[in-house]
């Protein structure tokens, strides 16, 4: 099976976020980056399917030069090759513009299966996979917790709300958006890290891909959310805070 996994590099989860001078994104100066969490699970699913059915896993990642690190990590875990769409200002693209670049990059790939994460931790559109499916003319299913391939057919388990699930069958080729927790993540082995260095990475510029259309959805301003609720906050010495909280819970909230 020819499997493409879309991975995005996003700011590390514990990052201290500061809005940048233009007020349209965060200052990236002292941020660390990592693979978007659900994308790590999408990659894991892709690698497991390859182990079961043979074939190849190609990583597709759009991002600036720093994204090369995330691509290398994916190759070290077992992906066979990568396509890096060099794009410096992802924030300036809307998800349709981004997906158009991704679709163009996949034009000659003829994947049997495209996997994405269900949502990015930074922009959080939760759409890029579904848009890509429509652009590629593929059937799709979202929020997937289990994938099985039998012949030319895909059997997936979709997560619904409130602990409900649903099995869905569809023909290949198809696109799935993968939910976190679908399986246990692997670590890269030393051998894997070594091998990654020799694996092919094709870098293409947005211009080569026919450039993205002008955005239909624009981010006008990014800012810290206003605080509405009056929370009683205690900080400082842990023992003191603990004592004050317990007193409040006993005598004010009366829940102890």
């Amino acid at each position: 099976m020819n499997i493409v996994v879309c991975v995005k590099q996003t700011p590390a989860r514990d990052s201290l976020l500061r809005v940048d001078a233009a007020g349209k994104w965060v200052s990236e100066d002292d941020l660390n980056f990592e693979i978007n969490e659900p994308d790590a699970y999408a990659l894991e699913s892709g690698l497991q399917l390859k182990e079961q059915h043979g074939g190849e896993v190609t990583v597709l990642c759009a991002g600036p030069a720093r994204a090369a690190q995330t691509i290398r990590e994916a190759l070290a875990k077992g992906a066979d090759r990568a396509i890096h769409i060099a794009a410096d200002h992802l924030g300036a693209l809307d998800p349709l513009g981004l997906a158009k670049l991704m679709a163009a990059a996949l034009r000659d790939e003829k994947p049997d299966l495209v996997l994405t994460g269900l949502q990015s931790d930074d922009l959080g559109y939760g759409q890029t996979g579904v848009i890509l499916a429509e652009l590629l003319g593929l059937p799709h299913a979202t929020i997937i917790m289990q994938v099985e391939v039998e012949g030319g057919t895909l059997q997936v388990k979709r997560e619904l709300e409130d602990g409900w699930f649903q099995h869905v069958a569809m023909p290949l080729p198809a696109l799935l958006t993968i939910q976190s927790g679908i399986s246990k993540l692997r670590y890269a082995t030393l051998m894997g890290i070594k091998r990654a260095k020799t694996k092919p990475v094709r870098t293409v510029s947005a211009a080569e891909l026919g450039d993205a259309a002008t955005p239909v959805l624009e981010v006008a301003r990014v800012y810290a959310p206003p605080r509405g609720k009056r929370t009683q906050l205690f900080d400082g010495d842990a023992r003191e805070s603990a004592a004050r909280l317990v007193e409040k819970l006993r005598f004010e909230a009366r829940v102890l």
Binding site: P11, L17, V19, V26, D121, D122, L123, G124, T214, P215, V216, L217, E218, V219, A220, R221, V222, Y223, A224, P225
Partner: peptide
């Protein structure tokens, strides 16, 4: 954005 840590105003072009 960022799982609720920031807000964004967006507009349709």
């Amino acid at each position: 954005l960022f799982q609720g840590k920031l807000n964004a105003d967006v507009r349709f072009a």
